[in-house]
Design a protein around this nucleic acid. Structure first.
Lengths: 163, 163
DNA sequence: AATAACCTTGACGTACGCGTTAGATTCTGG
DNA sequence: CCAGAATCTAACGCGTACGTCAAGGTTATT
């Protein structure tokens, strides 16, 4: 066979735009181990595979990895937290898929209500962090202005001494 | 001896306002183990002791523990990061103590410059986190409004169906 | 002086988030 | 068709941030 073929079990959407794990690792700055680890932990959906078993990632997968990294390193969420958020996202997709089908309306209501609840909790957490960070920034700038005041005083003394 | 006496090696400032580790733990919500751990790691200065070896903490120590916890749990800094910040704070105190003494002016300048540099880096980090959190909040609220739109649509259908 | 309540220093255990081989398999270029 | 690069699974290792005994010593109370 001259062409790469994809596994029958989990074919990629249908386009040519796939990425192997090495490329994803390079583009996202995480290691291959980390990508497999996220998959194990349910943070990334099991990607499609080549016949031989090589993972094939989509651009969406890349975006999700970047999202995970931001949540983790910049905002200090645990992977468990992030998994919850990812699952909420999956739920949203599920809702979207059901949107045009004739599912039970009350059931749809319940799911949406749940999604709203989860999201509102997330907003509350983010608000708390924003407030804390704001306080912190204020106190840091307070410190900076104190330091700069000291430098100014030293400058004055130096000027007075040299006259 | 009818009165508790403090150890000669490291007497507390001089007042009666001291706290044993259990009280500090209770007031800050961390465990005693955590307080000793922070001390081991240099995040808390070794507190004074009673003759028998019991740790005696000050109100300032309590505040520092609370600060550490905020930095850690809300903002996601590692203890190593926090140690750096605490040391910067110690440097500030050192500067303040030297402030009225006749230390070398150029040396003082250098120390202040260093403190400013460290603090500015911290501000930059905080700004990045603020920006990320802002983005995140916006996208969460975007999601919320999408969900609420869905609910509204369901409401419409229900109203139409019941007429 | 006995006893409870609190504290001490080890020292080993644990959960999280990956790092690091190891050995086999698969893919790509010549 | 085969060398060499990329990937696979499995499994043990490691740094961080503590938890959890264990075996005592100290302080307060009676």
């Amino acid at each position: 066979m001259a062409q790469k073929r994809t596994a029958g079990a989990t074919p990629p959407p249908q386009a040519e735009a796939y990425l192997q794990i090495g490329e994803v690792a390079e583009r996202t700055g995480v290691t291959q181990r980390t990508l497999r680890f996220y998959e194990e932990k349910g943070l990334l959906k099991p990607p499609s595979r080549l016949e031989g078993g090589f993972r094939l990632y989509s651009e969406d997968d890349v975006k999700r990895v970047e999202q995970i990294k931001r949540l983790q390193t910049l905002l200090g969420f645990t992977l468990a937290d992030i998994k919850e958020m990812v699952e909420a996202e999956a739920l949203k997709m599920q809702l979207h898929a059901e949107y045009r089908k004739d599912a039970e309306i009350s059931e749809r209501r319940a799911k949406i209500a749940k999604a709203i609840e989860v999201t509102e909790r997330q907003v509350a957490v983010v608000d708390q962090k924003l407030a804390s960070l704001g306080d912190m920034k204020a106190s840091l700038e307070q410190k900076l202005s104190t330091y700069r005041g000291w430098v100014a005083q030293l400058d004055e003394k130096a000027a007075a001494g040299s006259q």
